[in-house]
């Protein structure tokens, strides 16, 4: 309530360097505090208001449009190096409301709230009539594909047994019929070759996450499963932030990377 004219705000342009700087601070905060789904990148600044704050400082209120990248939230790759998920892959947009305090030249994110939505089927169809749409992560085909892909990964693991942490996305392709999935796994205290009851396996205190892509083809004569996983550097037990984490490491079971292509992936 504007008592005595104390509550005043200004509205700089959305593309002002000042506004973009604050949006950048907010985007870093959002990605640093994202532990599931995919990293996001700024697409458009929708609105900005700057409130005077007593006794000093200013509070920026921003509405930001974001787009999903193909880097998982746990992937240590800097978001600047991540690819924006294209419309043909069924892009996902986000709307974020953020409040950032600027005081003595320092920025502090006060609040950040984001909601995300996949692009409409019509928009995807306009760009790519035959591209598969995003399926629900609890879709039966997606669930089966993740289970099969994880089982295939564990069958070839020479170390830990890996548990499913998150099904990140799934697409059911009609022709030729197959299901594509992306999911997150984490190492447990069980040895993959010796596990008899996966239910008793517990995640390691030092979390080691991996991001997997898999396909499952169900045929009359059998099935075909493909999976490849990128294992990330272990995270200390009390890790509350992903900042400062080193890059992905090569799994001991992985083939040696060639010097020309030092891919950090552990691929099975």
């Amino acid at each position: 309530v504007p008592l005595g004219g104390g509550m005043t705000f200004r509205q700089p342009n959305c593309d002002d360097p000042e506004t973009e700087q604050v949006a950048g601070v907010a985007m870093n905060y959002i990605n640093d505090n994202l532990f599931q789904s995919y990293k996001v990148i700024l697409n458009q600044i929708d609105k900005v208001k700057v409130w005077n704050r007593r006794p000093n400082g200013e509070v920026y209120e921003l509405e930001l449009d974001t787009l999903e990248t193909t880097c998982h939230a746990l992937d240590p790759t800097p978001v600047e190096n991540c690819t924006v998920r294209q419309v043909a892959e069924h892009a996902v947009e986000g709307d974020c409301d953020v409040q950032v305090l600027k005081q003595n030249g320092q920025f502090t994110v006060l609040t950040a709230r984001c909601d995300s939505n996949p692009d409409s089927a019509e928009d995807v169809r306009k760009v790519c009539p035959n591209c598969p749409l995003l399926a629900q992560t609890n879709d039966t085909s997606v669930v089966v594909a993740v289970e099969k892909a994880l089982a295939a990964f564990n069958a070839q693991s020479n170390g830990s047994y890996y548990q499913l942490v998150e099904t990140s996305r799934g697409q059911v392709v009609p022709v030729p019929p197959y299901t594509y999935v992306e999911f997150v796994v984490a190492a447990t205290d069980c040895v993959a070759k010796e596990v008899t009851d996966p239910a008793v396996c517990k995640l390691l205190a030092e979390k080691q996450y991996g991001f997997c892509k898999g396909t499952h083809i169900q045929r009359l004569g059998g099935e075909d499963v493909k999976v490849s996983c990128t294992m990330f550097q272990t995270q200390p037990p009390a890790a509350g932030s992903k900042a400062g984490g080193p890059g992905p490491v090569v799994d001991v079971a992985a083939p040696t990377s060639s010097p020309a292509n030092p891919a950090p992936a552990a691929v099975v």
């Binding site: 509205q11 700089p12 342009n13 959305c14 593309d15 506004t19 973009e20 990148i41 700024l42 697409n43 458009q44 600044i45 929708d46 609105k47 900005v48 449009d65 787009l67 924006v84 419309v87 892009a91 996902v92 947009e93 692009d119 928009d123």
Partner: peptide, 27 residues
Amino acid sequence: KPAKPGMAGAAGPLVRPCPGRIRHFKV
């Protein structure tokens, strides 16, 4: 100064402070 009916509008680009530019594509 308000324009009178029939008068030409002010020349120059329309200023749209917000929303800002689209960096990738609109969903």
